[in-house]
Design a binder for these strands. Structure first.
Lengths: 245, 245
DNA sequence: AAGTGGTCTAGACCACCTT
DNA sequence: AGGTGGTCTAGACCACTTT
């Protein structure tokens, strides 16, 4: 097995192993030892450990001192981890549906107090507001409201670009990179506008994420409110107990 | 600064740094360089990197190649991360309230189909079922239903022990260790029993976690259904975009 | 006793940012 | 140019599990 130079070996190794895991290349659910993997891939044991740490962090392998490294089938089958960033289309695809975008509405509106605070702009500052609906095999499933301060936009754009993920727009037209997203997880009631958007009866529940996008230098870049139709997209969390403090 | 032997240096170093962060020991939000920390703590740079990786994973620091390591105040102030395991009392305390346990009911019931499947036991197998209500400064806030297969219990116990976290019971009376918890995150409606348990009007929403506890050898040990009263306990997720694949 | 993962070291080189 | 973090190596010793 050869790895390419210039791309971190640990990342490549983790990708190789992840693919092999998904293809069930380890029939007894047991991975080779660190020493063996290192020899196979022609890298040092430290780098193998780095690769395995990535997979362990994702929860898809479990390691036991003195015993070995094993596949975790319970986690491997999960499609939506709450601590992993996906594009909405990916999410729908992973859940086994065909993703399409239905509606895109674009407006310019002044920031209200809450959003202004989250984005660190003045109340009333102009925002580019984008509404999208994602369908899973024809069924409305995700409704998003994204808000970007107009002041951030540095280049002319076409409304059609706004179908793309917000990351792309921020990168290309605002020349800023999204480093991380902080989301509040809120159980929400389907009512008002949402009934039509998600095609769900009023009084049903859905999952709401209030998200703020941050740059590498910790500046808020955009804000989004997302509604996931519940049984279709269901998020999971993995919590490890082992972390001693 | 001296570290104790026999406890991993990286863990100790991360604890030292986390405490300093919380106490705002770095007024310009900038941490010392890896080299400096290594010299200060008398450990190697590799070990310092391991410690910093823990803090970066928690999201409370951000690192920039060529530039330095910085505190992330946005994340530092969050009290309930969805990917971190807490005891319920800790959670309530972190939210700024005084935790108490109100009700503990203990029953023995047969497993229904869904729970039986999650716990990998036969339908109808006897379960120890524990219901608890946690109060935050007197207000009902968390309602938990925990289910343990009776077959796992290896020692006599007193019902009073069941006030303790389920981890403790599994450890002491079943001689099994909880390694990780897999939770489905569900937006839920307050109705029926929940109205009384959480002291919330019917028709309000709350956050539900369907949790399965697993041993290091990947065996399901227990199942829990947890309801969090929404605005009081609100979970957050941190998603990093940097992970290339 | 042998094999496994866990920890730690010391040093090298690289990529990136600041000065 | 010098400092920072990012990557990788080779080797050592330890703790734990299996044989």
């Amino acid at each position: 097995m050869r790895l390419k130079p210039n791309i971190p070996m640990a990342i490549q190794a983790s990708n190789v192993l992840r693919q092999q895991l998904r293809k069930k290349r380890f029939p007894d659910n047991r991975l080779p030892s660190e020493h063996t993997i290192a020899a196979d891939l022609g890298i040092s044991r430290g780098t193998v450990r780095q690769a395995l740490a990535i997979l362990e962090q994702e929860g898809i392998i479990i390691r036991h001192q003195g015993s070995g490294t094993f596949v975790n089938p319970h986690v491997l089958q999960i499609d939506a981890r709450v601590d992993v960033a996906y594009e909405f289309s990916e999410l729908i695809e992973a859940a086994g549906f065909t993703p399409t975008i239905d509606t895109v509405e674009v407006k310019r509106l002044p920031a209200d107090a809450e959003v202004a605070q989250q984005l660190a702009v003045a109340v009333g500052a102009p925002l580019l507001v984008i509404h999208k609906v994602f369908l899973a095999s024809g069924q409305p499933t995700i409704f998003v409201m994204e808000r970007i301060p107009v002041a951030l936009i540095r280049e002319a754009y076409d409304d059609n670009e706004l179908h793309n993920p917000i990351f792309t727009f921020l990168q290309e037209r605002c020349q800023v990179e999204v480093d991380y997203i902080l989301s509040a997880i809120i159980p929400s009631l389907v009512e008002g506008d949402l009934v039509a958007r998600l095609g769900v009866a009023a009084g049903q529940t859905c999952l709401q994420f209030n998200e703020v996008f941050y740059s590498p230098s910790n500046q808020p870049l955009a804000q989004a409110t997302v509604f996931f139709r519940d049984p279709i997209i269901r998020f999971h969390a993995l919590r490890k107990m082992s972390q001693m403090r």
